[in-house]
Design a protein around this nucleic acid. Structure first.
Length: 575
DNA sequence: GCCGTTTTCGGCCCGACTGTTTTCAGTCG
């Protein structure tokens, strides 16, 4: 699949054209095609071979020719020439807040600046304030921007940001001055990482709300404190923006601040065609500027003849077109989850006993729990030896009697060895209900070997599930080199379920792969990988990833009753 | 560069804020 490569190339082209001061609408045309390519569920090669490139929205004659050139020759002359025409390093300047394409090229033309370090030096030596349109403040802002980029670095994981955001919302909600309140931004869309936390409020006393907000104990620094917008930095290093709007604007503002930007643009384009104007203050008739709605978010969609689109889908990756046809998925919900299919206990490296885990699961309203401790050779995680496995199974049998009708499924997270064989013999696997295959060692194999390793494991008829299929960690470990397309296809063919690991640092499979998997007929399981009982509550992050991957109840194994689940899992064993 | 029950040419999402300016360009979300 060259889809992602081409998406990156067109994103680069857009940036380069912008720096060169090209027609902004041409720039926009390249920008627009990026998410289209990223979210294509079919490989671009296949579409090209059918001669249907220009039937894809956003791809016309010009871009189709460039795609053809790249697919047939592996190169794109236009892109090469464009890169050569812009000095290396200038592109990096636009990563600094306050520095856009115009400023970047001016800094290069007038001062020869081609890196962030050179920019910092020039600012410190007060060489920037002499340039046209730039003064003392600009210089200060650039220095602050550089500092921010260096300090902030990365985005915050959803699993860390959401609890912080909820705490702030709960505090503000208690104020009698706060009427309605909601999270917005990428956090509301439940993206796996977020750049900041956006909160929206309606209030008749915004001064008071802002006062409380900017003086929350978690606040380290106040960036701005106005009547309609305040921004702070928390001790944890993340920025929080609070906006106060009038009640009649709440829905329009919520839609606006939830984004994504590309989704919003798409909606506004539709509005324009209907003679309407949508902004954060409401929905207006263009001809007389008369307000015709905006208090509720759903009105924004109704105005352009769409059904309500859940925030997790709002990425402009086809959700608007699918909504127009009335084919939006009926997304999975947390309440549909009847149990967890990946948990650890004291039998391997978990913190709590099996009994403690079961008690917590019962409290959560679950009907079952699959206990999947690590296998024998994973010594770092105190993998369960064959000898201990029997005792382990005895304990499960005893507890199953005690807790009936709650059901503890026997299982194991079995290591997939470097050659694709498993860390327990087949006769042991045959005795367990749920076998999760997973890679925990030898991550550095090349793509072909790693892909074959996982596919070999999937071909074992006892392997029901592949856990965290790409091995990535959001805190900083790249996925292993693996051909995800081949893995998805093999999963569908071998009746192997792929896991969405709900552990906030993993969220693996990730959203885009889940969605691709759905098109290929891959079935999904959700597992928290809980190593203590509180981590069972990570399930909502798994559900969020499933929703962002367009998953419905029927696509997810955990929504079934135990009998159904076992019959689906074991179907493979009968062949 | 894309696109079309207003159009194959002339449009292309919208507004706030900032800093530098005497009316606006650039950046951001």
């Amino acid at each position: 699949m060259k889809n992602q490569e081409l998406a990156q190339i067109f994103a680069d082209i857009a940036e380069l054209l912008e720096i060169k001061g090209e027609n902004p609408f041409k720039v926009r045309a390249y920008q627009k095609v990026v998410p289209v390519l990223q979210s294509l569920t079919e490989s671009i090669e296949e579409i090209y071979q059918r001669g249907e490139l220009t039937s894809i929205p956003g791809i016309g004659k010009g871009i189709a020719e460039k795609i053809e050139e790249y697919l047939t020759s592996g190169k794109l002359k236009y892109y090469q020439e464009l890169k050569e025409s812009v000095p290396k390093g200038v592109v990096s300047l636009v990563t600094i807040p306050e520095v856009g394409p115009k400023t970047a090229i001016a800094l290069y033309n007038k001062l020869g600046i081609t890196s962030i370090d050179e920019l910092e030096k020039a600012a410190r030596e007060h060489k920037i304030r002499g340039l046209p349109g730039m003064g003392e403040k600009t210089e200060e802002n650039i220095l602050r921007g550089i500092e921010l980029v260096r300090r902030r670095g990365t985005r915050m994981m959803l699993g860390n940001a959401l609890p912080l955001a909820k705490e702030i919302v709960e505090t503000l909600q208690k104020l009698k001055d706060v009427d309605r309140i909601s999270l917005a931004g990428s956090l509301r869309r439940m993206k796996e990482t977020v750049g900041d936390i956006d909160i929206l409020v309606t209030s008749h006393n915004s001064t008071r709300v802002m006062e409380v907000f900017t003086h929350l104990p978690l606040v380290r620094q106040i960036l701005a404190a106005g009547d309609t917008k305040s921004s702070v930095i928390l001790e944890q290093g993340i920025q929080v923006d609070l906006r106060v709007v009038e009640p009649e604007c709440f829905g329009a503002a919520l839609h606006y601040f939830t984004g994504s930007k590309d989704h919003n643009i798409r909606i506004r384009e539709l509005a324009v065609k209907k003679g309407l104007k949508v902004n954060e203050y409401g929905i207006f008739r263009t001809r007389d500027d008369k307000r015709i709605g905006g208090a509720e978010e759903v009105e924004v969609f109704q105005m352009v003849d769409l059904p309500y689109i859940p925030p997790e889908l709002r990425e402009n990756t086809g959700e608007v077109e699918v909504a127009q046809k009335g084919n939006l998925p009926c997304l999975l919900e947390l309440s549909m989850i009847k149990g967890d299919l990946h948990v650890h206990t004291k039998w391997s490296d978990g913190l709590h006993t099996l009994e403690e885990m079961v008690e917590e699961a019962k409290k959560m309203g679950y009907r079952f729990l699959a206990v999947t401790d690590h296998s024998q050779s994973l010594k770092v995680a105190r993998g369960v030896s064959l000898e201990n496995l029997n005792k382990h199974l005895d304990e499960i049998a005893r507890l199953n009697t005690q807790y009936r009708p709650f059901c503890i499924l026997t299982g194991a997270e079995v290591d997939i060895r470097s050659d694709g064989t498993l860390d327990y013999p087949d006769e042991i696997l045959a005795r367990l209900d749920v076998i999760i295959g997973a890679i925990h060692t030898n991550f550095k194999q090349d793509e072909a070997v790693m892909t074959e390793r996982i596919i070999t494991a999937m071909k074992n008829k006892y392997v029901n599930i592949i856990a965290h299929p790409t091995g990535r960690l959001l805190s900083g470990r790249d996925p292993y080199q693996v051909n995800i397309e081949k893995i998805l296809k093999a999963a569908a063919e071998t009746e192997t379920f792929l896991e969405i690991n709900a552990y906030p640092e993993r969220l693996d499979l990730r959203d885009v792969h889940v969605r691709r998997g759905k098109d290929l007929g891959v079935k999904i399981t959700l597992g928290t990988d809980a190593h203590n009982k509180m981590q069972l509550h990570y399930m909502n992050f798994g559900v969020a990833t499933a929703r962002r991957g367009w998953m419905e109840k029927k696509d997810v194994l955990n929504t079934g009753e135990v009998e159904e689940i076992l019959s689906l899992l074991w179907h493979k064993r009968q062949n």
